[in-house]
């Protein structure tokens, strides 16, 4: 191979946000799920897979901090066939892999599309991080920030980029509110005050079809993406 005589640039592929793949086909919609450790991101991903897998072609990328725990949880729960779940290693910095250096995650989503595609939707789950961890727009098209009532009912008031700017804020584990002394009404009001017109969902996955509101939101994003 003589690179000096190589042909001019081939198509896109140097950047991650292009809506079309190099072959000209529209890529999958990519939705990120972030939030603090233990807030229920993986449980939400699992519930979304169960709700949507019969109506859309799905895959999941997990970003674990020091194990393959989240990927293995999804595999054990058998929410998707194993070839549709990929784990990215983040070198002790989950927010770096979803925001500052998204290259490993972009490869994971591209490999999934190559190997099990065509895909309609890829859920990219962040490793548990802090309230400032948000996804790069080069990696995902929309992001869901998941907090829970047991993490303290002052989190919506405190704000931060995840709470204030995510496309959807999910306040999870509402069934625990009476036991941890969290005021759901106040959490909802604080969240609305922080977020203006951006939506907020309060959910308990212990309830029958507890994922319904979040799944409907994902369906609407999917409809807009493929329109």
């Amino acid at each position: 191979m003589h690179l000096d005589h190589a042909s001019p640039h081939d198509g896109p592929g140097a950047v991650g946000a292009d809506a079309l793949r190099p072959d000209g086909v529209r890529r999958a919609l990519r939705i990120g799920l972030g939030g603090p450790v233990g807030s229920g991101k993986t449980a939400t991903v699992a519930a979304l897979c169960r709700a949507l897998r019969d109506e859309a072609s799905l895959a999941v990328v997990t970003n674990d901090i020091y194990t393959r725990e989240d990927a293995e949880f999804l595999l054990r729960a058998a929410v998707l066939p194993p070839e549709r779940i990929a784990a990215v290693e983040t070198g002790a910095c989950p927010h770096t892999a979803i925001r500052d250096d998204i290259s490993a995650n972009l490869e994971a989503v591209e490999d999934l599309e190559d190997e099990v595609g065509p895909l309609d939707l890829i859920l990219v789950e962040s490793g548990g991080d802090n309230l400032t961890a948000t996804f790069s727009r080069g990696l995902v098209d929309a992001q869901i920030f998941v907090i829970d009532v047991a993490g303290g009912d002052d989190i919506p008031r405190k704000g931060g980029p995840g709470v204030t700017t995510a496309d959807l804020l999910v306040v999870n584990k509402t069934d625990l509110a009476p036991y941890v002394g969290s005021d759901l009404t106040r959490m909802a009001a604080d969240a609305r005050a922080q977020r203006g017109r951006l939506p907020v969902v309060l959910q308990s996955l212990r309830e029958e079809d507890g994922i319904r509101d979040v799944a409907d939101w994902v369906r609407s994003r999917l409809a807009a993406w493929t329109a």
Partner: peptide, 8 residues
């Protein structure tokens, strides 16, 4: 901080 994956 060059975004080429070295951090992992």
């Amino acid at each position: 901080r060059f975004p080429a994956g070295g951090h992992a």
